[in-house]
Amino acid sequence: MSVPPILSLDAVSKRFDPRLTLGDRIAAAIGGDVETRAVQAVRDVSLSVAKGETLGLVGESGCGKSTLGRIAAGIMAPTSGAVRLDGEPVIGADGRKHTTRIQTVFQDPFASLNPRITVGDTLAEGPIAHGLVTAGASRAYVAEWLDLVGLDPSYASRYPHQFSGGQRQRIAIARALAMKPDVLVCDEPVASLDVSIQAQIVNLLLKLKRELGLTYLFISHDLGVVRHISERVAIMYLGRIVELGPTLRLYESPEHPYTQALLASVPRLVTSDSDLAEFRPIAGEIPSPLAPPPGCAFHTRCLHAGPRCSAESPALLATRTGRATACHLYTGGVEKAA
């Protein structure tokens, strides 16, 4: 890649250990049936996002995409590995986030805005605390950002309940932008919105990227929206990236069997009776992250799986220029361990 990455994740892993109560610990000590297994939510993920790029992060529930997004945004510390912004660690040795240059937009604008605080105060709070604006000048500052996201600046005195879902998501975006970030982590920003409103928010994100030169990490389960907005896409399955590549090439010729199955599962808008093709949905369900299958986590559902797949975990390796796939099919076959 010619442009140096602005955001890079280096071998990031995240494990959640169950928090045992005293009772649980005693029960476990005397041989009781207590859940003590850890969840490995993210395993050894390395990613980089170039300045001005949109990287789509796709996966089904429980794949770890939101956890990875939180780690990338510096909201959560990884168990191991590092997140860097322009080469500087996002989380310092004290375990706290050291930059305001990455901000986040969450899925549910009903939960992410404080119902008791006016929109104006919500937008001004961060910038004042970080010295981006003085309290005296904050009113004009807030008006500017509201205007940019397509809201009337007079709305600053209103409360979140006075807005529709689409307007609230605009407010959440304005709040993130008011911190003047370079990178925006968007976690399912259109998933809870009505169809006609989704297009409005997608367009707003495209416009903001053009006007402010933003970089997006765009997390979604909606393959259609991701295809529209991203230059590159990473597909996650049970904590790992299984395929990574330029959007159109990945959508047109997916390499990983999971990507192939996922893309085939997306309901297509059929407008002609002759296009009513039968398809074979992917079999089974995502295994529990508490007990992921050994080797390649997808081998239990994969049509091509062989002995090697349950024995050896495939690495994410470049198969073509700019394309990487974690599958033994592309590194010597699935029969015998290399």
């Binding site: 689409g166 006609s196 989704q198 297009a199 409005q200 259609g224 295809r227 529209h228 907005i229």
Partner: peptide, 20 residues
């Protein structure tokens, strides 16, 4: 018209203005 897959990637989607 606003369905992303019916539009070329990256362009502004035709949107219905306003809300319900």
């Amino acid at each position: 018209d606003s369905v992303p897959s019916r539009n070329p990637p990256g362009v502004d989607l035709p949107q219905i203005p306003g809300s319900t």
